[in-house]
């Protein structure tokens, strides 16, 4: 409860401020009211933050208390270690996505365009950021190290990832720069799943998400096999 409820409260504030107070002055975006347009991005923001922080804190906690050694001395395969931690992160991401969706429904009407695409994007994104959190925790040596990436990398990339606006509104240069942000693809694929509109082609978005997810997954396995950050 202490990990899920804060997201519901924070995201409710986003809906109140950006959706109800500022939204009506902005008008329509992509053929939807502003609050409807930002709802998928806000849900995705919660998924990214929660799946990442779940794994980074669990794994670093295990390193800090040294009970990660319980697994390291056992014959548990590395792939199972990654799968176990990632499953925890994905579970939290999916639960939070569902809760924030319910919060969104308190503020506006949402008709889900494609349940399959919506669910696939949530699970893939949660997987990607769970693995990201795991890699961060593997390298982390102190508590500061697990807050640097969320503060200086994830949050800016999420805010600039098309959560609150369509990149079609940006000048060409900044539009091109935005395309280098992987979170843009997740937010837009999810927006397509919920609203049926996206700044990015669905195939391209899935391709980018899958490439990043598998790349980080294999990298985390490589780090565990080498013992980086966990075996001297």
């Amino acid at each position: 409860m202490q990990t899920i409820l804060p997201s519901a409260i924070t995201m409710a504030l986003y809906f109140v401020i950006f959706g109800n107070l500022i939204g009506p002055r902005i008008g329509q975006m992509g053929g939807f009211s502003y609050i409807q347009y930002i709802a998928p991005g806000i849900i995705m923001m919660a998924v990214i933050t929660n799946s990442y922080s779940n794994v980074v804190s669990s794994f670093f906690g295990a390193k800090f208390q040294r009970h990660i050694e319980e697994i390291l001395v056992s014959p548990t395969p590395n792939i199972l270690i990654v799968a176990g931690y990632v499953a925890g992160g994905v579970a939290r991401g999916v639960i939070v996505a569902f809760i924030v969706l319910i919060v969104a429904l308190l503020f506006t009407e949402i008709q889900i365009y494609s349940y399959t695409i919506t669910l696939a994007v949530v699970v893939l994104t949660a997987t990607l950021f769970s693995v990201g959190g795991l890699i961060n925790a593997i390298y982390a040596k102190k508590f500061d190290d697990i807050s640097i990436v969320p503060t200086f990398v994830l949050t800016p990339l999420t805010y600039l990832g098309g959560v609150f606006y369509s990149i079609d509104l940006l000048p060409d240069f900044w539009r091109a720069v935005s395309l280098a942000n992987p979170i843009l693809y997740m937010v837009n694929a999810f927006r397509f799943g919920i609203l049926g509109v996206s700044d990015i082609g669905l195939g391209t978005a899935f391709f980018v998400i899958i490439i990043f997810t598998s790349g980080l997954f294999y990298f985390s396995l490589f780090l565990l096999r080498r013992g980086v950050g966990i075996r001297n």
């Binding site: 295990a62 208390q65 040294r66 009970h67 050694e69 001395v73 056992s74 014959p75 395969p77």
Partner: peptide, 19 residues
């Protein structure tokens, strides 16, 4: 190493279980 590990039990010097 996995088969070798299954034959070993380790009691480390420092406490290393979840509190």
């Amino acid at each position: 190493f996995d088969r070798a590990k299954s034959l070993i039990g380790l009691v480390p010097q420092e406490l290393n279980f979840s509190q």
